[in-house]
Design a protein around this nucleic acid. Sequence first.
DNA 1: TATTGTTATACTCTATAACTATA
DNA 2: TATAGTTATAGAGTATAACAATA
Lengths: 152, 152
Amino acid sequence: MNAARKKNTTELQLGNLHAQLGYHLARASVVTTDAFNACVGHPHQLRKVEYSLLMLLLANEALSPKQLAKVLSLTAPNLTMLLDRLQDRGLILRERNPNDGRSQHVRLTHAGTQLIREADQAAKGMYAHWQSRLSPAENAMLLELLAKVYQG
Amino acid sequence: MNAARKKNTTELQLGNLHAQLGYHLARASVVTTDAFNACVGHPHQLRKVEYSLLMLLLANEALSPKQLAKVLSLTAPNLTMLLDRLQDRGLILRERNPNDGRSQHVRLTHAGTQLIREADQAAKGMYAHWQSRLSPAENAMLLELLAKVYQG
DNA sequence: TATTGTTATACTCTATAACTATA
DNA sequence: TATAGTTATAGAGTATAACAATA
């Protein structure tokens, strides 16, 4: 009983895992995902990828599914289903590209604009979840270093 | 045609997304996951979580499912199925804890030890995937900052 | 009564192949 | 022939509830 209790409180060793970026990314993602769901996801009924998609449309006015699939790392069929759901909720609309009948312009509706603006406001509360452990300067440095990992 | 082509090569705006840790974590994870699968996952038939689990057993000799579930952020039922698969492959074994019949000791088999040592060697090739964009000092700083996000 | 682990099950996420339409 | 997007479908990942065994 005492032995088992002691074992549970013992810090476990990470071995070479402590030097691996992917491991730390996964651990950090658990924290950010929980913070997102608490501040944005549950209150506004948006999953992370839906929030990102609507934020991109807010910043760019109109994007093609092709562009969205690339930046969100989604396959075309999965993006189609995602857009279907957002369209059914009246948050986005799909227009045919007048210059190229194969492609589309995806835009926010008025309701979609309103929702993503509210969600964006709520998202500002997320930083509170880890600001006690990370200073503003450290946070800024972290974002820069992460961008270096995937930009190329 | 020309207009569409131009649009595709235009950098899209991130808006407030550029200030959000979760977004950059997700983008960086795509890179590290691809690197993992290329260097470790496909060659050794291990998913990320399986690799992490075996690495933890290599560093700690024996851990309970409870401990593994916590550090890997898995629910108990999902960990059970994961351990079942690794046990069926002869990579781990489950022993009853002699001090507490409710809990188990999960250990690497000889084959499991051999496999995870090979996989760990292969994992050293992962850093090559982003080292051109991140110096060793930047990489070390990144790992430290990420640990701060989830440690508390 | 609480804890560890399992079983059963459902829901979401992701990936591939085959298709339509436009260029 | 190539590209944008869709449909259908299968597999992997993840969550909850109900259960058995032990403390």
